[in-house]
Simulated scan of single mutants.
Amino acid sequence: MDSFEYNINPSRVVFGIGSVNKLPEEIKKLGCSSPLVLTSKGQNGMLHGDLLTEVLSKCSMSAAATLNMAVMHTPVPVTEAALQQLKAQAADCIVSIGGGSVVGLGKALSIRTGLQHVCIPTTYSGSEMTPILGETDKGKKTTRSNPKILPDVVIYDANLTKSLPVAICSISGINAIAHAVEALYAKNTNPITNLLALEGIKKLAEALPAIARDPSDLSAREGAQYGAWLCGVVLGTSAMALHHKLCHTLGGSLNLPHAETHTVVLAHALAYNAPAIPEQMEKIASVLPDSDGDAIKGLNIFLDKLGVSRALKDFGMQEEDIDKATDIAMSMQYANPRAMERDSIRELIRRAWSGESAKADV
């Protein structure tokens, strides 16, 4: 066996239906008593804030404040506005509840203040399990990694995903799958990461179609949450490559929605790298239904079965943006199993823009 290194991230995980009710106990274990609660903008964010108010009140605890202001791509101006409100409160920790945007804001505030962070994810983004923070400022997205960015406690409760629409379940779950796929061919891949990645892909490949068939299937939603947790762990311990590079380029520069962009790009990025990773392609095919040993075929069928949009133009990307995105992608070199070839990368982006099926011929 080849030598390898594997870093275990130290988050505490509380998993299970009804686990949100353990929040006050977890806050006390951190030595805290007055959390700042973060949610997203809109009705869902308000409902999440109300839920945590009720949970905390049952244990004679209350939030220092609730901020319903998280938006996608964690814009620095939003973080700075939240930071000013945080400083005006007597908060001694941060609790974020929601999807990746809320988790991102929680991370951004935690790393700036040193406050401990309890995260309650309601989607399958996996961000809660990574020491990575992506932020946008003036149209440019940057990422940084620091162990202190990792949330201190993560509470998984599938009950909180029951209201998540099937369409959002699908794209959020595919986003999680993308983390695991890239980990299999990352420059720092190792046997432990591979096990977690393949199990995560398998669980999500089983759970997402089940949710699509019966949105009330709580067992399937719990399975998807478990798979997303594994994929998030993988993301937090692996170096990402072409897929995430393109998604950061497209999302941060063109303001495209995060999970939708990952959903569209995944099969195309995998097809681009396919000639350089035959062993990994076999492993991916082994955990995808209907693949017949062909990972690209299996992934195309899986995406079509879920009925997700496969065209970036559906989310506002213009045809003239293809060259701009190519230029940005080529200017930011990541480690990738296949060398970055401009014409082929442009064709990959064009296919993702138009909504064509992925093919390993670029």
Results as ranks from 00 to 15, higher is better:
residue 163 S to D: 01
residue 162 K to P: 01
residue 313 K to W: 00
residue 281 M to P: 05
residue 65 A to N: 07
residue 46 M to F: 07
residue 33 S to R: 13
residue 302 F to C: 06
residue 52 L to Q: 11
residue 4 F to K: 06
residue 346 R to V: 00
residue 97 I to W: 10
residue 276 A to H: 03
residue 105 L to T: 04
residue 100 G to M: 07
residue 127 S to N: 14
residue 49 G to S: 11
residue 358 A to I: 02
residue 239 A to I: 12
residue 309 S to F: 01
residue 336 N to L: 09
residue 127 S to K: 05
residue 27 I to W: 15
residue 109 L to T: 09
residue 311 A to S: 11
residue 92 D to L: 06
residue 71 V to H: 04
residue 192 I to C: 00
residue 128 E to M: 14
residue 59 C to V: 15
residue 113 T to S: 04
residue 275 P to D: 05
residue 170 S to E: 04
residue 56 L to G: 14
residue 201 I to R: 10
residue 129 M to R: 15
residue 217 D to M: 06
residue 235 L to K: 13
residue 262 H to I: 09
residue 197 A to W: 13
residue 278 P to Q: 02
residue 110 S to W: 09
residue 191 P to L: 12
residue 28 K to T: 12
residue 9 N to S: 04
residue 255 N to Q: 01
residue 204 L to Q: 15
residue 199 E to W: 11
residue 76 V to I: 15
residue 77 P to W: 00
residue 34 S to W: 14
residue 248 H to Q: 15
residue 322 I to D: 07
residue 343 D to T: 02
residue 194 N to Y: 09
residue 97 I to P: 05
residue 52 L to Y: 14
residue 46 M to N: 04
residue 320 E to D: 07
residue 85 Q to K: 12
residue 229 W to T: 10
residue 335 A to I: 05
residue 48 H to Q: 15
residue 56 L to C: 05
residue 146 N to I: 00
residue 154 V to N: 04
residue 292 D to I: 00
residue 299 L to C: 10
residue 193 T to E: 07
residue 287 V to F: 11
residue 82 A to F: 08
residue 357 S to I: 02
residue 157 D to G: 03
residue 33 S to L: 10
residue 347 E to N: 08
residue 227 G to T: 02
residue 7 N to H: 07
residue 137 D to G: 02
residue 88 A to P: 02
residue 93 C to F: 15
residue 229 W to I: 02
residue 69 M to Q: 07
residue 274 A to S: 11
residue 226 Y to C: 06
residue 321 D to M: 03
residue 223 G to N: 06
residue 287 V to R: 13
residue 2 D to Q: 05
residue 239 A to H: 12
residue 86 L to I: 13
residue 45 G to D: 13
residue 139 G to Q: 02
residue 281 M to N: 02
residue 10 P to H: 03
residue 157 D to V: 02
residue 336 N to I: 07
residue 59 C to E: 14
residue 135 E to F: 08
residue 13 V to F: 09
residue 331 S to V: 04
residue 202 K to N: 13
residue 12 R to A: 04
residue 264 V to P: 04
residue 229 W to Y: 15
residue 152 D to L: 04
residue 246 L to H: 12
residue 99 G to P: 01
residue 17 I to R: 10
residue 129 M to D: 11
residue 157 D to Q: 03
residue 33 S to C: 13
residue 307 G to H: 07
residue 223 G to M: 15
residue 11 S to D: 01
residue 287 V to D: 12
residue 47 L to C: 07
residue 296 I to E: 08
residue 97 I to A: 15
residue 10 P to F: 00
residue 62 S to R: 13
residue 265 V to A: 06
residue 265 V to W: 04
residue 357 S to W: 05
residue 356 E to M: 13
residue 298 G to S: 10
residue 13 V to W: 00
residue 281 M to R: 05
